[in-house]
Structures are given as C-alpha cells and as structure tokens.
Amino acid sequence: MKKFEKLSSSVVPLPIENIDTDQIIPARFLKSTTRDGFGNNLFRDWRFDSDNQPKADFVMNDPKYKGQILVAGKNFGCGSSREHAAWALEDYGFTVVISSFFADIFKGNALNNGVLPITVPDEFLEKIFAVVFEDPNTEIAVDLEAQIVTIVATGDTFEFEINPYKKSCMINGYDDIDFILSHKAEIEKFEQTRPYSFYR
C-alpha cells in the first residue's frame, strides 16, 4: 500500500446522497480477476450513456472539475461489499473521499487500499460544495498526521477522526496482513483454548 501523509488538491464535487457501490462500479464490470483497470468503469453508468459516449452533464466529464479528492453526499459507499469500488476510485486517481457519512464496509475497504475516507459535519460538507461550485479551482488540503482538513480559500478547518492504528497504516504504507501475521503464535494458542469441539 502506498503511503499517505499530506495532500492539497482541487476536488470533484458529487452532491448526491446514498451513492452505493453499484454506482461506483456496476456488477457487470466485476469479472476481472486482478485489481487493475477498474478506474475506466468508475461511475460507469453516470459517466457514459448506453452507446458508451460521455454524458456531458456528469461532473466527471466536466473539465472544470478535477483532482485527487472526491466530495460526495452522505452515506457514501453503501450497499455491496465489493472492494472493487475502492480499487476503481484509487485506479482513477482519487486518494481522498470526503463525505458527511460513510458506509462501514466501504470505509474499511478504502482504508485498506490507501484511499482516505474523511467524515466531516453536514455544514462543512455544504461549505465545500458552495466554495467549489463558486470556484472549481479551489483546493482542499488534507494533513493526516494532524487529522486536519482545510478549505484553503476560506481557511475553514475541521479536525477529523481516524482509528489511530489505521492512521499509522496509511502513513507508513502497512497493511492489516502484516499486523495480523505478527500475531500468528497468539492465534494458534487461541485455537487450542477454544472450548467448543463442534465447530470445524
């Protein structure tokens, strides 16, 4: 996993609520057996029409909006547990997703792939949307060590929460398997003490 410390970038605003992982990457694109290339089909049915032509009214097809930060409405990533959603965002070039609320499984999947989900209050999210729609070049700065997200143009800041363990994984580029494997002996010991013989 690649390391993440700081980022300042313009953003792609997507003020839609309950964006589910079927929108992020539709099921018919889950047939690949590798982790690569899902970015091409990120938000496929919102980005392209049935003739595979870009839909002009979708924000990702508007050259005004670009950057490594996606800002979306509340309950982002709900629905299917497909990690392909996180892979698609990462592959397309997003490193941070900001929303006022994330679905559990997506949040974990994002963190496991070096995509930082930042939860901000509704008012802060509204402020980002307002500033970005006013000036598409405006930047958002993220400092993971300090856990601060800043709307650069206005100086508004918010101190976001992140599990300290996941934070250190992101900063150092570690993944959970490294951590779990370091406890192999304890896991084997635990298995010996499991009191119930009827579970295989």
Binding site: H84, I105, G108, N109, N112, D176, I177, I180, L181
Partner: peptide, 11 residues
C-alpha cells in the same frame, strides 16, 4: 472486502 478475505485466508 477482498483485502479482508486475504486476511482470513492468511490467519
């Protein structure tokens, strides 16, 4: 997610 599937496989 799939990263966790790998964790369960591994440990």
């Amino acid at each position: 997610g799939t990263s966790q599937v790998e964790q369960v496989f591994a440990a």
